[in-house]
């Protein structure tokens, strides 16, 4: 199969970028989207030009490195998968495919399709942890966690920190990412002592990074490759309100 690609090329943060067209021929529908970019990059590199830069690592949908907005959708047309797990069979032969980086002021562009998502690390750093040092905590089974609760916490913890929620949100809001971590830790009994400070600190940092507010469109949930539920945002709102009221 064949595709016509319109790819955002930008040398670095200081140079303006533009779309460049590439023709990708002799493709196989079983190729992953990134393998298609590999093939295009091989052709570009063979001409001595700089290949398209894009973030990727595990290529099995778990590291959260790959990004890209494909035809206007973060991680492409297929639901609940990352770009690296998008296969060409999701596209029509001969179609034009527009590939852009994730766009948000909180994710400054680095080069081509690569953006800087360290804002997420700083949000976790503000409070996304349980403050237990390495040592000899009590036996793991001394604190039973009801299975439904553990499962719900796991649903939230499945977030891979890719930033698609921000990319899809009309306000570039990071609520789903932050809510997933707040919920994961605040649901578990281990996370209760820091429940309030965690919610306050992480939300403060989120605001500082310049992400927008939630307009409850739930487009974040729709594009999330791990299918994280938008109801965790309600959970975080609840925790935040509670924390505000209890810690005036």
């Amino acid at each position: 199969m064949k595709l016509k690609l319109r790819v955002w090329r930008q040398k670095n943060a200081h140079t303006p970028g533009q779309f460049v067209e590439y023709h990708a021929d002799n493709l196989n529908p079983n190729m992953s989207f990134l393998e298609m970019l590999d093939v295009v990059n091989e052709q570009i590199a063979a001409k001595g030009e700089e290949p398209i830069a894009f973030d990727h690592d595990c290529r099995e949908g778990i590291c959260g490195a790959c990004s890209c907005v494909i035809n206007g959708e973060p991680h492409g047309p297929h639901d609940k998968v990352t770009t690296c797990q998008t296969y060409l069979r999701s596209f029509q032969d001969g179609a034009t495919v527009t590939i852009e980086p994730f766009r948000a002021n909180a994710f400054p562009l680095i080069k081509d399709l690569v953006v800087d998502r360290t804002a997420f690390d700083r949000i976790i750093q503000a409070g996304g942890y349980i403050s237990v040092g390495t040592g000899h905590p009590p036996d793991a089974n001394s604190l039973p966690v009801p299975k439904p609760l553990a499962d719900l916490a796991m649903d939230a913890a499945a977030c891979i920190g890719c930033g698609a929620c921000v990319a899809a949100c009309k306000n570039a809001s990071a609520m789903l990412f932050v809510a997933a971590k707040v919920s994961h830790l605040n649901l578990l009994p281990q996370g209760q002592p820091e429940r309030d400070v965690r919610a306050l600190a992480m939300v403060d940092q989120m605001d500082k990074e310049g992400f927008g507010a939630c307009t409850v469109t739930l487009s974040c949930q729709a594009v999330c490759p791990k299918g994280i539920s938008g109801s965790f945002i309600a959970k975080m709102n609840r925790d935040f309100l509670r924390a505000m009221l209890l810690n005036p």
């Binding site: 319109r6 955002w8 779309f19 907005v69 035809n71 206007g72 959708e73 527009t98 852009e100 766009r103 948000a104 002021n105 909180a106 562009l109 899809a168 009309k170 306000n171 570039a172 809001s173 310049g210 992400f211 927008g212 507010a213 307009t215 409850v216 469109t217 739930l218 487009s219 949930q221 729709a222 594009v223």
Partner: peptide, 23 residues
Amino acid sequence: QNRQTRDQRYATRKLVKATLASR
């Protein structure tokens, strides 16, 4: 505030889920 979060807009944009009312 929300308008300050994305200076460079998308060229193609599929508004996933965001209803007209919400926008």
